[in-house]
Design a protein around this nucleic acid. Structure first.
Lengths: 189, 189
DNA sequence: GTCTATAGGATGATAGAC
DNA sequence: GTCTATCATCCTATAGAC
C-alpha cells in the first residue's frame, strides 16, 4: 500500500505545519516544500486541502468519543471516572500532540458535513463529562460548586495540554498522569 | 478626534471577526464589509492589516504585564497573590474577551518587532507566576507538586476563559471570581 | 508519482477621482 | 473619508507530459 503511506506522510507533515501556524496560514506549497515535492503532486494522494484537515481532526475526535464512551459505561465512582478522562486526554496528547492544534483551533474551517459531525461529537463529549460531574456532586464526592466551573476548569487544562507537553520536553507519562490527577482533583493547597 | 474613533471601530470589528475565524481567515474586505464600507477605505485609518493585529494583541498583553507587576509587588501570601492573578484574568476577559482570541491564537502572525515584544512579555508573565508558585511551595502554603504542573493547570484555565465566558452568557463577575478561585485553589473534592 | 504550465479567483495594498 | 479601478502576488486545483 504505497498510496496509503504517502497519504499518511502528507497528513503528518501538514499536522506539524498547522500546529505551528494554523490551517489558513499554511499553503499546499508549504506542505509540498516540507516534503521536497511540488504542490501539484500532493493531489495524486489527497482530494483537497480540506480533506487533509478533516482527516487530522476527525480521526482524533473519534478517539476522544470512543474513549469517553468507555469511561461513561464503567460502573465506578465519579472521581474514578474523572481520573480516567484525565488519563484519556494525556494518552491522546502524547500520541497525537500536533493533531490537537488543528482540533482546538481550526475545526471551524471544516466544511459543512465534517463540521456538523465534529460539533456534534464535541457536544456529546462535554455532555458526558457534565453528567459525570453532576453524578459526583449528587453522591457527595465533589464539592457542590457550579458544575460548569468544574467542567470548564478541568477541560480547558486538558485541552491545552498539547501546547505545554511539546514545550516541556516530554515528561514521563505516568508521573504526568499522577500529578495532573492530583492537582485537578485535590487542588493545590 | 474623528480619526481615532474610526480607527478604534476598525480594531473592534476586526477583533470580533478574528475571534470567530482567526487572523489569517479574515480579509480586509471582510472587515470593511462588516463596517459597510470598502476595503480601500480602511487604509485611511490604518497602515496595514498587521497594524490591526498588533494593536489588538499588544494592548491587552500590556494590561496583563502591568497587572502582574502590581501583584508581584504586593507584600502578601502566595495564595493571596494567586487570587489576585485569577481576578486579573477575569477582569481582562470580561472587558476584552474578543481580543483574547487573537492574543492566544494569532500572536505568531505578528511581524518581527512586535512578535519579539509579545514573546518577551509572555515569558516575563509566566516567570512571575512561577515565582509566586515557588514562594507558595517554599512557605508551605501550597502542596509540593511539580510547580510547572500547577502553573500550567491554572494558566491554561485562565487563558481559555474567554471561550467559555462568551458561550455561557456572561455570569456575574463576582460569583465567577469566587467560584474560580475556590475551584482552582482548593480543588473540587 | 512527479513534474511544468496554467486556469480562475482571492488577497493586501495603492492611485487618484469625488 | 469613501469610492472605483487596478496591480502584483498568492492561493487551490486541474491538465497533460514524462
Amino acid at each position: 500500500m504505497e498510496q496509503l503511506n504517502r497519504k499518511e506522510e502528507i497528513i503528518v507533515t501538514a499536522a506539524r505545519l498547522f500546529y505551528e501556524k494554523g490551517y489558513k496560514a499554511i499553503s499546499m506549497r508549504d506542505i509540498a516544500a516540507a516534503m521536497d515535492i511540488k504542490a501539484a503532486s500532493l493531489y495524486n494522494h489527497i482530494k483537497s486541502k480540506q480533506e487533509i484537515l478533516s482527516e487530522i481532526i476527525l480521526k482524533v475526535a473519534e478517539e476522544f468519543t470512543v474513549g469517553m464512551e468507555c469511561v461513561v459505561a464503567e460502573n465506578s465512582s465519579a472521581i474514578k471516572k474523572i481520573e480516567k478522562v484525565i488519563e484519556l486526554h494525556i494518552d491522546i496528547t502524547v500520541n497525537h500532540s500536533e493533531a490537537l492544534a488543528a482540533l482546538n483551533n481550526d475545526w471551524m474551517h471544516l466544511e459543512e458535513l465534517d463540521l456538523n459531525a465534529f460539533v456534534m461529537m464535541r457536544e456529546d463529549y462535554e455532555q458526558n463529562f457534565r453528567k459525570i460531574i453532576k453524578q459526583g456532586i449528587d453522591t457527595g464526592e465533589l464539592k457542590p460548586h457550579h458544575p460548569e466551573v468544574i467542567l470548564f476548569s478541568i477541560l480547558s487544562t486538558l485541552r491545552t495540554l498539547y501546547l505545554w507537553y511539546q514545550k516541556r520536553g516530554k515528561l514521563d507519562v505516568n508521573i504526568l498522569k499522577k500529578d495532573m490527577i492530583s492537582v485537578l482533583i485535590n487542588g493545590i493547597v
